Simulated assay, not measured.
Amino acid sequence: MAFLEISGLRKRFGAVDILKGIDLELEKGGFLVLVGPSGCGKSTLLNTIAGLETITSGDIRIDGRDISGLHPSKRDIAMVFQSYALYPNMTVAGNIAFGMEIRGVPKEERAKAIKQVSDMLQIGHLLDRKPSQLSGGQRQRVAMGRALVRNPQVFLFDEPLSNLDAKLRVDMRTEIKRLHQRMGTTFVYVTHDQIEAMTLATKIAVLKDGVLQQFGTPAEIYNSPANLFVADFMGSPAMNLLTATVENGASGLAVALERPNGAPLRLPVVSGNHGLSAYAGKPVIFGIRPEALTDPDGADRKARSLTEDDCLIEVVEPAGSDTFAVTKLGGKSVVARLRADAGIAPGQNTRLAFNLDKAVFFDPDSQMRIA
Rank of each mutant, 00 (worst) to 15 (best):
L352M: 13
V105A: 09
Q214G: 09
P260Q: 12
K282P: 03
N248C: 05
G124P: 00
G58R: 09
G69S: 08
G272D: 01
V269C: 01
G94C: 11
L134P: 06
F31T: 06
G29H: 04
V269H: 02
K358P: 01
L4C: 09
A278K: 13
A166R: 06
F215N: 03
G64L: 05
D310R: 12
I102S: 01
V211R: 14
A345H: 14
P218A: 05
Q82K: 01
A201V: 02
L179I: 06
Q122K: 15
S118V: 08
S305I: 12
A371R: 13
M198H: 03
K107E: 13
I221A: 05
G14I: 00
E159D: 14
G252D: 03
I370C: 13
T199C: 01
M183R: 13
A254F: 00
A113Y: 01
V246S: 07
Q213N: 11
I285C: 08
R169C: 10
R304D: 14
A353E: 03
G137S: 10
P260C: 04
K28N: 00
E108N: 06
L24G: 01
L161G: 02
K20L: 04
M144A: 07
A113P: 02
I285M: 13
L253I: 06
V334Y: 05
T323D: 05
N47Y: 13
D295E: 14
V334C: 12
M183Y: 00
G184W: 04
I60G: 08
S57V: 03
A340Y: 11
I6N: 11
L19K: 12
F98I: 05
D232N: 15
T245G: 03
S305L: 15
G184I: 06
D322H: 14
Q181D: 02
L329Y: 11
A371I: 03
K358A: 15
L45G: 07
A359W: 09
V80K: 01
G210L: 07
R266L: 09
R61M: 09
A78I: 02
L329H: 11
T350C: 10
A219L: 10
L207D: 06
D341L: 03
Y279I: 02
R10E: 15
G58V: 12
T245V: 14
G36F: 03
Q367N: 13
G136E: 07
M1E: 13
A263I: 03
M100I: 02
G287T: 10
E109R: 15
K42E: 08
G104N: 12
V142E: 02
I370S: 13
D59S: 15
M368S: 14
A147F: 05
S7G: 00
R146H: 09
V211Y: 08
A319Q: 10
A93I: 06
G21N: 07
S7N: 13
F354D: 06
N95M: 14
S305A: 12
I6F: 12
L228P: 04
L164M: 05
L338I: 07
A231C: 09
